[in-house]
Simulated scan of single mutants.
Amino acid sequence: MTADAVGGVWQYALDLADGLRAHQVEVTLAVLGPAPSEDQQAMAEAVGVKLILTGLPLDWTATRRSEVEEAARIAARIAAQAAPDLIHLNSPALAGGADFPAPVVAVCHSCVATWWQAVRSGPLPDEFTWRTELVRQGYRAADMLIAPTLAFARSTADIYELERGPAVVRNGRRGGLVCEPASSEPAAFTAGRLWDDGKNIATIDRAAARLSIPVLAAGPLDGPNGARVHVEHVRTLGRLGDEEIRTHLSKRPIFVSAARYEPFGLAVLEAAQAGCALVLSDIPTFRELWDGVAAFVPPDDDEALANAVEHFASRSELRVQQGLAARERAKSYSVEAMSAGILAAYRSLLQSKIRKSSLEEAAA
Rank of each mutant, 00 (worst) to 15 (best):
residue 221 L to R: 08
residue 150 L to H: 13
residue 85 D to K: 07
residue 107 V to R: 03
residue 212 S to W: 05
residue 188 A to Y: 03
residue 177 L to K: 06
residue 142 A to E: 02
residue 155 S to D: 08
residue 151 A to G: 06
residue 101 P to I: 07
residue 192 G to H: 03
residue 80 A to P: 04
residue 109 H to Y: 09
residue 110 S to I: 07
residue 200 N to M: 05
residue 205 D to L: 10
residue 211 L to M: 12
residue 219 G to Q: 06
residue 117 Q to W: 03
residue 168 V to L: 09
residue 105 V to G: 11
residue 82 A to D: 05
residue 116 W to L: 01
residue 86 L to V: 12
residue 99 D to G: 15
residue 145 L to F: 13
residue 157 A to K: 06
residue 159 I to C: 00
residue 78 I to T: 01
residue 167 A to K: 12
residue 158 D to V: 14
residue 186 P to H: 02
residue 193 R to P: 05
residue 84 P to R: 02
residue 137 Q to W: 12
residue 149 T to Y: 02
residue 159 I to S: 00
residue 163 E to A: 14
residue 112 V to F: 01
residue 123 P to V: 03
residue 219 G to P: 14
residue 208 A to W: 04
residue 174 R to W: 03
residue 147 A to R: 11
residue 117 Q to T: 03
residue 198 G to C: 09
residue 89 L to E: 04
residue 206 R to K: 13
residue 100 F to L: 11
residue 134 L to T: 00
residue 121 S to M: 09
residue 130 W to E: 02
residue 141 A to N: 02
residue 138 G to M: 09
residue 164 R to S: 09
residue 124 L to S: 01
residue 190 T to F: 02
residue 92 P to G: 11
residue 216 L to N: 05
residue 162 L to I: 05
residue 80 A to R: 13
residue 191 A to G: 12
residue 129 T to H: 04
residue 217 A to H: 01
residue 192 G to M: 01
residue 169 V to L: 09
residue 183 S to Y: 08
residue 114 T to F: 13
residue 82 A to I: 10
residue 214 P to K: 14
residue 129 T to R: 11
residue 123 P to S: 00
residue 170 R to C: 15
residue 82 A to W: 01
residue 88 H to F: 10
residue 127 E to P: 10
residue 191 A to K: 13
residue 141 A to P: 00
residue 216 L to F: 12
residue 154 R to D: 08
residue 121 S to A: 14
residue 100 F to Q: 07
residue 186 P to C: 07
residue 210 R to E: 15
residue 185 E to K: 08
residue 130 W to C: 06
residue 144 M to H: 13
residue 183 S to T: 15
residue 150 L to Y: 10
residue 199 K to V: 11
residue 95 A to R: 01
residue 101 P to D: 01
residue 98 A to I: 10
residue 189 F to A: 04
residue 83 A to S: 10
residue 127 E to H: 14
residue 81 Q to W: 05
residue 192 G to P: 04
residue 84 P to A: 04
residue 111 C to T: 14
residue 195 W to H: 15
residue 212 S to M: 08
residue 143 D to L: 15
residue 84 P to H: 01
residue 140 R to V: 04
residue 186 P to F: 06
residue 134 L to N: 02
residue 81 Q to D: 03
residue 87 I to R: 05
residue 198 G to M: 06
residue 94 L to P: 02
residue 101 P to M: 07
residue 172 G to Y: 03
residue 195 W to E: 11
residue 193 R to K: 14
residue 103 P to M: 10
